[in-house]
Design a binder for these strands. Structure first.
Length: 281
DNA sequence: ACGCCCGCCTGTAAGC
DNA sequence: TGCTTACAGGCGGGCG
């Protein structure tokens, strides 16, 4: 489900709600697959209870909730994970609510809901975050936090033989881009998914970099994309608005907004991809 | 190094 | 009205 724009939307909302607040109680339900790095699962509860929230950071698609005692709560939403904030514990729980972090009566609680359980939460020591968590250590640059010149971007591209779409989705190269936004970025840049970095002219590299920054920025301004199943919800359960701005994703057969040619759907590495056969060369 | 396939899960929609 | 299949915003591992 969530890529950088969705995770950043949640981060901004979460920051306003929980920074400065102290965790009162934590409950983890049933099989506890979403806290699989903690065995027993009660270890997760013990570490999180009584902690004060100091800040909320995003790295790629990961959320880092900084806590006192030099601890960090790491959240990854996977395909179907949601973080929901409710004011009262009396609010009926959604199906597949796996973790509830309560900040006390009258304050509110944070709920982690995830039907497919690909998402996860875990707590680790803040000091050796990189050593302990290779996934975070190996993340590539963040396209929004680490602004760079297109010349520098071109230097990073050099030597990669991977085609553009899988490269954009490679979290070790760039952090935060997934299946939706790679397609939207490539349309914005006017580039086919199977172009290689070495084949790009300087102008094309510049277009790719600009399309990446602008597409992700626009998506955040629209609070992310919710597809037909409306599985992506923000912290307050609201759907995003960027899906109506999509140029290609989930628009098979519809006319290209630029040239009216029908948008084509194809399979790339088992995933659906969308492109305009005329605008993308 | 790279590309492709699978498995991990549940829910929904389309196809027969 | 079934039942079966395909597919869904991610990621890691294994294989050729």
């Amino acid at each position: 489900m969530p890529e950088l724009p969705e995770v950043e939307t949640i981060r901004r909302e979460l920051e306003k709600e929980i920074v400065g607040k102290r965790v009162r109680s934590v409950t983890v339900s049933d099989g506890a697959r979403v806290v699989r790095r903690h065995r027993p699962a009660s270890e997760f509860v013990t570490k999180l209870e009584k902690r004060k929230v100091l800040g909320v950071e995003r790295r790629g698609k990961y959320l880092l909730v900084w806590l006192d005692s030099s601890l960090v709560l790491v959240v990854h939403l996977g395909m179907s994970g949601q973080l929901l904030w409710v004011k009262s514990a009396k609010e009926p729980a959604e199906k597949h609510t796996h973790v509830v972090v309560s900040f006390g009566p009258g304050v509110g609680e944070l709920r982690f809901v995830d039907p497919r359980t690909f998402g996860e939460l875990f707590i680790t020591a803040g000091e050796q975050l990189e050593q302990a968590i290779p996934e975070l250590a190996h993340l590539g640059f963040d396209p929004l936090d680490q602004v760079m010149s297109w010349i520098r971007f071109r230097e990073l591209l050099v030597g990669h033989k991977t085609k553009l779409k899988p490269l954009l989705m490679d979290q070790r190269f760039i952090a935060g881009i997934g299946n939706i936004y790679s397609d939207e970025i490539l349309f914005g840049a006017g580039l086919r998914w199977d172009r290689t970095p070495d084949s790009l002219t300087p102008q094309e590299v510049r277009r790719l970099y600009r399309a990446m920054v602008e597409t992700l920025g626009d998506a955040i301004r629209h609070r992310g994309s919710s597809l037909a199943d409306e599985q992506y919800r923000d912290l307050f359960g609201e759907v995003g608005g960027f899906q109506s701005q999509h140029n290609v994703y989930d628009r098979e057969g519809e006319p290209c907004r630029r040239c009216r040619t029908a948008i084509v759907r194809l399979k790339v590495a088992g995933r659906s991809s969308f492109m305009c056969p005329r605008c993308q060369v």
